[in-house]
Design a protein around this nucleic acid. Structure first.
Lengths: 301, 301
DNA sequence: ATTAATAAATGAATAATACTCATTAGTGAA
DNA sequence: TTCACTAATGAGTATTATTCATTTATTAAT
């Protein structure tokens, strides 16, 4: 029943003091304002104001409505402003899903410049999915999926953003430390430390050990990258992880990296998103930053 | 830019899940809703939703706007409800001005039933006026003026609501206590206690003493009715006040009332209001209650 | 007192726009 | 494939808001 325009008219009248002046301010005629408010008064069977000489005096109902106008109209103005921000992609949030443990370290390198570049946009990182990362992407639980193992699916696009080599990390005390490359058989008397995920998702098994029908002496799982590397440094086991990640710790821990096989295991981190959101500026910004982070690390390599 | 209708449409869509269903609920066509929202989207250069199969999925901007809808629309509904209350005179406030001290005691007898009868209406009592009660009534500082001395003025109406007799109150120890009526001369050796207002506004002077060119031995002023009567009871002076008011204290204090002159001084309390508000229900309610309170006291007299 | 000036209300005409109708296009189920 | 369902779209219509012209009321000025 009551509309924004009524509140606007009332507020303008109270600011300027007369219908005629308010009409000019609102780029309307005095008549329009009069009609509009009279209609409201008729519909509600109230008086908003009484003529007091040639001026207007608000009734109680009018004063009440003016109060509401002064309260609500700024909120509408705020909404318009926020919508403008959405239009300029200054506003929003990006749900980022992660399907690989070491990706997290890399993600941090992308998130920081992203947040700096898009002050209005929040990033929300999720690592646990009830039905897997792809389902989360489909269900709009997340907007981006970061994974080293893309699955080609209708409506989902994956872009490689970061190439890396999966290497073996060993303690400098470990006899293997002297080698530049290692063969599957040489791992059969080692303790292998991995993240706690199915072996089917561990490349060291899928692409290295299993093809050669080898298994490590022992397989232990640990959540945290830091702890895994501490264990490695203490020569309590060996681990497979991205070379760039291991090298970041190599300065502070007595560890060495060794190529897996003769040519090494080369992988990519992929960023997946819903095909229809190809034009989403946040997603493109993220991917651009992701790729440049990869290049920066590749140079440092 | 953004209007109530947009919020309503969005809220209805989110409740029911489809444009078509929402359109029916809003007594519009699917086309109307589509056009309306598309226009908004064009104007703001945003997408509020994306088609997801045959359903609709809100974008971030859409979700944001829905949040705002769920927040703001109830407020509009509240306003409509309050306006309805104003229409039914269930809502409002009455500014009551007082120009006589003893009126306050009487006012309390009117306010209580008024508040009970009009639960939505507040009463605000004012006793001090920068330019007098009439000016306050003119300036809309108050809506009602309670006074024993009405001034006939354009646009202001006064109605007598409560007749009373002004009597002299004396201690039972006072020799005058035996009398049923008193003459001005008999006050010349008494201490007169009054409220602290100009003698021009005190009837005991204007209508009793001054016409007979008499003055009391002493004239002291006191703010509070209770204290005045305590002083009278202690025979430290005599006072003039409405008979009904003095009688209310006669049970608990050793005081007696005496008629002023042979026929007594008979007055009325008047209620004044702006002529144009003759139809204001609150004002009429107040006056009706005021008159009936007068009748009740008259019977008890 | 009369006149001029100012402001709001009102009625009729018009301009603006919101809405409907008819149709198209896309999706999911049988 | 067809059918059922939903949203988008364009054109025409209907509705509504707005303007214009006038009236009424009040205040200030002559």
């Amino acid at each position: 029943m009551i509309e924004k325009i009524h509140l606007s008219i009332l507020r303008e009248i109270s600011r300027i003091g007369s219908l005629t002046a308010a009409a000019n301010k609102l780029s309307l005629t005095q008549s329009a304002l009069s009609h509009s408010m009279k209609k409201l008064e008729r519909q509600h069977n109230i008086n908003l104001w009484l003529k007091d000489g040639r001026n207007i005096r608000l009734t109680e109902a009018g004063s009440y409505l003016l109060e509401q106008a002064n309260r609500l109209l700024p909120q509408f103005e705020r909404i318009d402003e926020t919508l403008r921000q959405f239009a300029n992609n200054e506003k929003g949030s990006l749900g980022v899903g992660m399907e690989c443990h070491p990706c997290y370290q890399w993600l941090l390198k992308v998130v920081q410049p992203f947040l700096a570049q898009s002050p209005g946009v929040d990033i929300d990182v999720k690592q646990r999915f009830q039905f897997g990362g792809m389902a989360a992407l489909f269900n709009y639980d997340i907007d981006l999926l970061i994974t080293p193992d893309p699955i080609q699916k209708e409506r989902i696009v994956f872009e490689p953003v970061f190439p890396y080599e999966l290497v073996l990390v060993v303690s400098q005390q470990n006899p293997l430390a002297a080698m530049t490359a290692i063969q599957p058989l040489q791992l059969t008397d080692q303790t292998l430390l991995t993240y706690p995920v199915e072996t089917a998702r561990l490349d060291i098994f899928q692409q290295f050990l299993l093809p050669a029908q080898c298994m490590p002496k022992l397989h232990k799982t640990l959540e945290a990258t830091d702890i895994i590397l501490q264990m490695v440094a203490a020569n309590r086991g060996v681990a497979a992880m991205p070379k760039w990640l291991a090298l970041e710790y190599a300065n502070t821990l007595p560890i060495t990296v060794i190529r897996l096989g003769d040519s090494g295991i080369h992988k990519h981190i992929y960023v997946g998103y819903r095909k229809q959101e190809k034009l989403n500026k946040h997603i493109q910004t993220f991917i651009t930053l992701a790729k440049s982070s990869g290049e920066a690390l590749a140079v440092a390599d």
